[in-house]
């Protein structure tokens, strides 16, 4: 049987420190959209999660 965390946000990539805050999920702050895209990809490859874009430079990596 496959046991694991599902449908949960594993990490957040954000460019604006003011717009997002979390005490449980790691947040990676980046300078611009290009870096955000690259970092989101890297984190998603490590976690096997999927990258979703929420606008305003915020990416969430979710395990489905």
């Amino acid at each position: 049987m496959d046991v694991g965390v599902k449908d949960m946000i594993l990490a957040i990539v954000a460019s604006d420190k003011e717009s997002i805050e979390s005490s449980s999920v790691p947040i990676f702050y980046v300078q611009d959209k290009e870096e955000g895209e690259r970092l989101a990809l890297l984190v998603s490859k490590v976690t096997m999660g999927m990258v979703h874009y929420l606008g305003s430079g915020i990416y969430v990596i979710v395990k489905h």
Binding site: E37, A40, L41, S44, M50, V51, H52, Y53, V60
Partner: peptide, 8 residues
Amino acid sequence: MNIGLENS
């Protein structure tokens, strides 16, 4: 669905 990455 929401596809976050530009490349995808």
